[in-house]
Structures are given as structure tokens and as C-alpha cells.
């Protein structure tokens, strides 16, 4: 059943008095007449003064109550819903990972290839791996992981560390180093809240006389908060600051 005519302006004003802010906002988008009727200052003033009492000081002849209310609501909803960041400007196909592992003076494993050619984590996190064949050694390690941008014009050292590593479980040796803050406001006064990590996994070859063999190298970037790996996109967005 359709109406022949729109409700007159007076009726709309009357109806508007009984609407909550959201319904009032939706009704404002219906037509010119509805917009005019639904955006009167006297309708929005009570919402403004109950939600943001201090903002009434901002009202001037050129600011309407509904637009000020919306400005503040838009701002808080942006805050709550966190605008999705732009997609990363670099991809794994443009990055070259160079990983060199030394134990003492001896080079144990070296690997250099496109990031996309490593085993990429399927869950979309910034974590990579590759199989290696190397001897398990004891001693002080030098671990270097550098990301080089295609064209070899820029590079970023994720980790460069000389120490004995941290033993994790029976067969893991892990190295980590805090990453610098990006050139944006992230991590003011300290690191970026991120840690670069290189993990070595060993396998104890019982048949081969109990010799420890290195079987896999893992690379990743973690967030200090919650000790979780960052997402692939967040990792790329971080590297952007140094590689573009």
C-alpha cells in the first residue's frame, strides 16, 4: 500500500521528536524534505548535550548540531572500527631474503632467494621456512638475515646477531633481535614493538651415531605484545618504511 503524498513538513517534525539518533540520521537521507525536517538543531541538541556535553562550546553560527554530532560520532566509530590500513605497497615477489649462518668462523648455511620462494606460512603470517642440510655445531653463532629490495638499491637487516642462541625444546636454537621503529609514529622512543627472529631446527640422527643435523631454518617477525607473529601484510607494511 503506497502513500499518495509525502507526510508534510509539520508531521515530519512531530515524528522526528520520537526518533533515536540513528533513525533520525537514516531518515535524513530519504529526500530533501525529510532532510530539512530531520536536521533541525532543536532535534539534535539534546543528543549532542547528552553524548558530548562539552562540544556545545564548539557550536557557532556556521556549525549545525547534527553535523557536529556526526563529526564526533564518525570519529569515535573510526576509532572503534579501526580503519583498515592500505594494502602493502611491496610484495614478496620483490623481496630477496639473504640468510647467512656461521658457527664460529665456519659458514654453516647460506641461502639467498626471493621471499616468495621460501615456504610461506599458510595462515597469512609473516613467517617463512626452508629446509637445509647442515651439521649441528656447538659454539657461538653469527646469524644474519637481510631483506633486499628488488634492484639491490635498498636493504634492511632484520637480524644480525652473534651469540649462543636460546635453546628451545630439545632440537631448537633461536635468535632474536628487537627491530627499530618505522619512520612513522610507531614505537616512539624505542623499538617498533617488533622482534626479528631466526630459528634453527635440528634432528638427532640416531642411526647416524647420534649426530645432530640441522634440518630447517625458520624466519619470522613477532610483535612484542602477546609474542605473536605479525600478519604477512603488517610485516610488509613495516618493511616498506625501509625499502621504498
Amino acid at each position: 500500500m503506497n502513500l499518495q503524498r509525502e507526510p508534510p513538513w509539520e508531521s515530519l517534525q512531530q515524528i522526528a521528536q520520537f526518533l533515536d539518533p540513528k533513525s533520525l540520521a537514516m531518515s535524513s537521507c530519504v529526500s530533501k524534505l525529510w532532510h530539512e525536517a530531520m536536521s533541525s538543531n532543536h532535534l539534535w541538541k539534546p543528543f549532542l548535550s547528552s553524548h558530548y556535553p562539552s562540544s556545545l562550546h564548539l557550536i557557532s553560527n556556521t556549525t549545525s548540531h547534527h553535523s557536529l554530532f556526526s563529526l564526533l560520532r564518525n570519529s569515535s566509530s573510526r576509532r572503534r572500527h579501526q580503519l583498515t590500513p592500505p594494502p602493502p605497497r611491496i610484495s614478496l615477489h620483490e623481496l630477496f631474503f639473504a640468510v647467512d649462518l656461521f658457527c664460529g668462523d665456519e659458514r654453516v648455511v647460506s641461502q639467498g632467494k626471493l621471499a616468495s620462494e621460501f615456504e610461506v606460512d599458510k595462515g597469512g603470517i609473516f613467517r617463512f621456512g626452508y629446509e637445509v642440510e647442515g651439521e649441528g655445531k656447538e659454539g657461538e653463532w653469527r646469524v644474519v638475515w637481510v631483506v633486499v629490495m628488488e634492484g639491490c638499491l635498498k636493504a634492511f637487516t632484520v637480524i644480525e646477531r652473534v651469540d649462543k642462541g636460546r635453546v628451545v625444546g630439545g632440537n631448537g636454537l633461536w635468535f632474536s633481535e628487537e627491530l627499530p621503529g618505522g619512520r612513522c609514529c610507531v614505537g616512539v622512543g624505542g623499538g617498533g614493538g617488533l622482534v626479528g627472529e631466526v630459528g634453527l631446527e635440528f634432528y638427532c640422527d640416531v642411526e647416524g651415531g647420534g649426530r645432530r643435523k640441522m634440518v630447517r631454518v625458520r624466519l619470522g617477525v613477532l610483535s612484542v605484545i602477546g609474542c605473536r607473529y605479525v600478519s604477512l601484510d603488517d610485516g610488509l607494511r613495516y618493511l616498506e618504511h625501509f625499502l621504498l
Binding site: N2, L3, E6, P7, S11, I15, A16, Q17, F18, L19, D20, S23, M26, S27, C29, V30, S31, K32, L33, W34, H35
Partner: peptide, 23 residues
């Protein structure tokens, strides 16, 4: 009437009350 407008998008309101969008 206000109750009839609740939770409705502008398009739903236009359809229900046969209002022409002249914006």
C-alpha cells in the same frame, strides 16, 4: 510513525512510504 522508521535504511523508508528521492 517513528516506530515504523526504526532500523530502516533510507531506501527501505522510501519504498515503504513511496517517497521519491529528489536529492
Amino acid at each position: 510513525f517513528a516506530g515504523m522508521l526504526k532500523m530502516k535504511s533510507p531506501e527501505e523508508i522510501r519504498q515503504k512510504f513511496n517517497i521519491n528521492n529528489d536529492l
